[in-house]
Design a protein around this nucleic acid. Structure first.
Lengths: 102, 102
DNA sequence: ACTATATTTTGTTAATTAGCTAAATACCGT
DNA sequence: ACGGTATTTAGCTAATTAACAAAATATAGT
């Protein structure tokens, strides 16, 4: 889960995930959307793969990347849970700033 | 929004936010939960403040931190939107059916 | 003004990261 | 086997990060 958030910390990687939302894309297809050298992108793919956010599949000479949505979902809803956001219908509890008793 | 995800990339900072879920805590209170030097924590507070994930309020000699839940909520649901993770709806599979986030 | 407490700032270090170019690898077609 | 295309690996550099100890700042009480 830590790897997921580390992976999400980079805007290029978030953008890659967005692109993959539409369907699998080859490394080259993705690279076309960026102003980065291909090795740089390849590094980003590796980070996403290690976080299990994408799957890789070779088809001949090209490698396709596919978004692993469930991992992303799980990480995000896991965080939301741990922060008390969302699913629960509990009203937002924003305690006042009170000087703690001894 | 990038600052938010950068801030969330560190486990200590995520833990700090979790602690603040229960209510405001002083820097010292938070520090008690960690094995880190106070200056290190202070650095984490600064990152969280710059991401607007927490607010700071001084009361005498102690500084209280309060979770800014709305910023966290917005960032997470913003990402979920942009990834097509539906809060209430099933994720659309066909391209073009889902409107991009704001 | 002095002392004690709470927190931050400064300065430093080691580790990590994102980027690049050049070289290597993998696969396909001829 | 050779040449071309797609992608990754290797090797490097500059910037960023997380950690610490020591010093500085802010406030309260005496």
């Amino acid at each position: 889960m830590n790897r997921v958030f580390k992976a999400l910390a980079d805007p290029s990687r978030r953008r890659i995930l967005q692109l993959l939302r539409e369907g699998p894309l080859s490394a080259g297809d993705i690279a076309r959307h960026f102003d980065l050298a291909k090795p740089t992108l390849s590094g980003h793919f590796a980070v996403l793969r290690e976080a299990d956010l994408v799957d890789q599949e070779r088809q001949g000479t090209t490698i396709y990347y596919r978004l692993n949505l469930s991992v992303l979902e799980e990480a995000l809803s896991g965080l939301m849970d741990s922060m008390g956001i969302g699913q629960g219908e509990r009203a937002a509890h924003s305690p006042g700033l009170v000087k703690p008793g001894k």
